[in-house]
């Protein structure tokens, strides 16, 4: 969670997450890469800490690493101590968590192993609070059980602000025309908004447009071409043989374009590929 930004552009989502956790419920925040899940988690944590709620921040890793991190934060052991075996540590952490109100915060939870997820699921069933951040996660175990908040692309006003902030940080000047052009390369993705400014600074041309907010217009184009088939029926209806044949030929052209368009290699829907 390394962010230079000090502005939260998702106040509504932040307030909702804070209210959910203060109300005694866990929450899973999901979003595509770069959409701002980690940033939101950071601002939610700041807000929760200001309300004196104990947070146990854990980075994804092996079950042993996670247990050690939790044990240290719960003051079960110090860094100089020799840690017991994982099953024993797991039992001690679980027991300690039962007697205090705290929130376990894990970003990039989709990287957790099945063993960790099973243990977290167990904790959740015992009433432990979680604030998890993940990429659109698989619908299984703990990801399925937690209330899920999906982050949408940011409004373009905020993206404009992020571009301007980044330009200021990098001490480069952008005209409104530059900002408007850079905006079309990043969609509503704040991470990409920062990246395109850096690309602009080093003079890279936008060959790869990574954001995922696309609508494939190919089916619309094909549908419009297939509508030309109607000319054939009009020709038949009014008894115009030439129009009937001409419409038939247009229908064939439409079908050929369809065949051609669908035979083109498809692009990946994942960011960065």
């Amino acid at each position: 969670m390394n962010f230079k930004t000090n502005s939260c552009y998702r106040e509504k989502e932040k307030n909702l997450a804070v209210a959910t956790l203060l109300g005694g419920n866990s929450i899973l925040v999901v979003g595509k890469a770069g959409i701002g899940v980690s940033a939101l988690l950071k601002f939610v944590c700041i807000e929760l800490e200001s309300k004196n709620l104990k947070l146990l921040k854990v980075a994804p890793g092996s079950i042993k690493q996670i247990l050690v991190s939790l044990a240290l934060q719960l003051l079960l052991y110090t860094e100089d101590d020799k840690f017991p075996t994982s099953p024993r540590l797991q039992r001690e952490v679980s027991e300690k968590l039962e007697f205090q109100t705290s929130v376990i915060v894990i970003d990039e939870a989709n990287r957790l192993s099945i063993a960790v997820r099973s243990w977290l699921e167990e904790l959740h069933e015992n009433g432990q609070l979680f604030l998890l951040g993940a990429k659109p996660a698989l619908a299984r175990d703990i990801f399925l059980k937690l209330p899920r908040m999906e982050l949408k692309p940011l409004d373009y006003e905020f993206i404009r602000k992020i571009i301007s902030e980044t330009a200021e940080e990098l001490q480069i000047e952008l005209t409104p025309a530059d900002v408007a052009t850079l905006q079309e390369r990043c969609g509503g993705n704040p991470m990409l908004a920062r990246r395109v400014v850096r690309e602009y600074q080093i003079g890279l041309k936008p060959n790869a447009l990574d954001h995922t907010e696309w609508i494939n217009g190919t089916p619309f184009l094909i549908a419009a071409l297939i509508c030309l088939t109607m000319i054939r029926f009009i020709g038949r209806g009014i008894g115009d043989t030439n129009l009937y044949i001409f419409g038939g030929m247009l229908a064939v052209v439409g079908s050929l374009v369809r065949l051609f368009m669908f035979s083109l290699p498809k692009g990946s829907k994942k960011l960065g590929e």
């Binding site: 696309w214 217009g217 368009m261 692009g267």
Partner: peptide, 27 residues
């Protein structure tokens, strides 16, 4: 073109592109 257009503004800011593969679109 590579960046496409927000054809369905204001309902959606998503960009309409043809074809789907960006490598085949124009700069």
């Amino acid at each position: 073109t590579k960046a496409g257009v927000s054809a369905f503004y204001p309902m959606s800011m998503a960009r309409l592109v043809i074809p789907a593969n960006p490598a085949l679109r124009l700069s």
